[in-house]
């Protein structure tokens, strides 16, 4: 019974489940490479920043990706150093999830020791606070 209710998606559905999001992300990346969110109107701003006037930990990510796609690594790091540092992990895990969904074969699993994830949480919250303090303006250059 359970097998019937939670049937695994068929191959075509699996490819769509992966293909559609990848196409959308790809389209977004093409747009991001061509247009700088800092000087075009159609990239949505951060709601947190709009309402509070303070930076959030993710502020600058889209502009940083724009710089990265155009080969300006240093500019990308200036806009959001934390997210640039996390990008390799997100890229690897995201690619692994895509492979797993499409073919049922993920990349070798990276099991992070729990303490690292708790530290990451603390770092994100600390980064959030610090980049709003003028003394640490280097973290909030966006």
């Amino acid at each position: 019974m359970q097998d019937l209710l939670i049937s695994k998606p068929r191959p075509v559905e699996r490819l769509l489940l992966v293909g559609v999001p990848i196409a959308m992300v790809g389209f977004a990346l093409v747009l991001l490479r061509a247009f700088n969110p800092a000087s075009t109107w159609f990239f949505p701003p951060c709601p947190f920043r709009e309402f509070t006037g303070y930076l959030c930990p993710g502020c600058g990510t889209l502009r940083a990706i724009h710089q990265l796609l155009n080969g300006h690594v240093a500019a990308a790091f200036r806009l959001n150093p934390l997210m640039m540092l996390l990008l390799p992990y997100v890229g690897y895990s995201g690619f692994s999830t895509a492979l797993d969904t499409a073919f049922g074969r993920p990349l070798p699993n990276v099991f992070l020791r729990p303490v690292y994830i708790w530290i990451l949480l603390a770092v994100i919250i600390l980064f959030w606070i610090l980049r709003n303090i003028p003394f640490f303006a280097i973290l909030g250059n966006c």
């Binding site: 701003p45 951060c46 930990p57 993710g58 994100i124």
Partner: peptide
């Protein structure tokens, strides 16, 4: 653990819901 998805949500301006 959906960590990479959580990081993406935190980065793309869904604060504080990614936390």
């Amino acid at each position: 653990n959906y960590l990479w998805q959580a990081i993406v949500c935190t980065a793309c301006c869904c604060i504080p819901l990614g936390i």
